[in-house]
């Protein structure tokens, strides 16, 4: 496994985990994890149902799940940050996509911009909606949207927050093929802007193609981290999911995973 140990070139923009683990009902869900994420990382968190992917992400975002260890953005400890300050550092798309049905889409997205105290929340909201290709939903009420549209709108809210760390819990669970691609491209854009994305994903092929690193959580608390092709190997996947897989490589150099 290649755990990054080189010094962080732009220290302030790295995310450092030091013996970090989420806690539920008094026990840690994974073995304590130490790693360093550099700007421009898209980390896919994969693993079987119930292994604690969401808890890991929520604990990381300080969104109601306890944890041990320390996570720092540069030299600033997440735990000791004020909530207002943390909102300028980390944004979260949780699996709870619900919002008041009468809320207008542009108002919902502006909540993200306001959270990070951006100067012009309305413009930031409009830009985020355009980036996700759903600007035409701007004046719609949230309750009138389809499940997929709701997810795209909530994603726009997260992007409008414009934080260096973006945490996405199953961002494509309700999306069609086209919009899955839109989200993958959005993650690439964030990566190119030097941000760090951490996303829980179920689709291993999607993870393989859209992430620069993979964190595989195993049900016995073990975890594996590294480049996608290193971690999504058949033996590790079999150990985690109990499913046999093969990695195929096309003549263009694209890899994909098939189950048998």
């Amino acid at each position: 496994m290649t755990v990054e140990t080189r010094p962080c070139p732009t220290l302030a923009r790295c995310i450092n985990f030091d013996s970090f683990a989420a806690i539920r009902s008094g026990r840690t869900l994974t073995n304590p994890l130490s790693l360093r994420l550099f700007p421009g990382t898209v980390l896919g968190v994969v693993g079987p149902n119930g292994v604690g992917k969401s808890s890991f992400l929520s604990a990381l975002a300080h969104a109601g799940v306890e944890s041990i260890g320390v996570v720092r953005a540069g030299d600033r400890n997440f735990r000791s940050m004020r909530a207002q300050h943390r909102a300028s550092t980390v944004a979260l798309l949780s699996q709870d996509l619900a919002a008041p049905g009468e809320l207008r889409v542009k108002e919902l997205v502006a909540i993200g911009a306001r959270a990070a105290r951006r100067r012009n929340p309305h413009r930031a909201a409009q830009e985020a909606l355009e980036d996700m290709g759903v600007a035409e939903l701007s004046n719609r009420r949230f309750g009138s949207l389809s499940g997929g549209q709701k997810q795209l709108v909530q994603l726009s809210r997260v992007f409008a927050q414009d934080t260096p760390l973006v945490i996405l819990d199953e961002p494509t669970s309700a999306l069609d093929l086209y919009h899955q691609k839109v989200v993958a491209e959005a993650m690439q854009t964030l990566r190119n802007r030097g941000k760090i994305v951490i996303a829980a994903l179920h689709d291993l092929n999607y993870a393989l193609q859209s992430c620069t690193q993979i964190l595989l959580l195993d049900s016995d608390g073990k975890s594996h981290i590294g480049a996608p092709l290193e971690v999504l190997q058949p033996d590790l996947i079999h150990a985690a999911y109990g499913v046999q897989t093969t990695i195929h490589t096309t003549e263009h150099g694209h890899s994909f995973i098939s189950t048998h």
């Binding site: 979260l92 909540i111 306001r114 959270a115």
Partner: peptide, 21 residues
């Protein structure tokens, strides 16, 4: 008003929207 907007989106979202829930 911002806190109420954020809380109406749920605890997780509020917690990462600058609110000490």
């Amino acid at each position: 008003t911002h806190a109420l907007d954020a809380l109406s989106l749920g605890e997780s979202t509020a917690a990462t929207s600058g609110i000490n829930v």
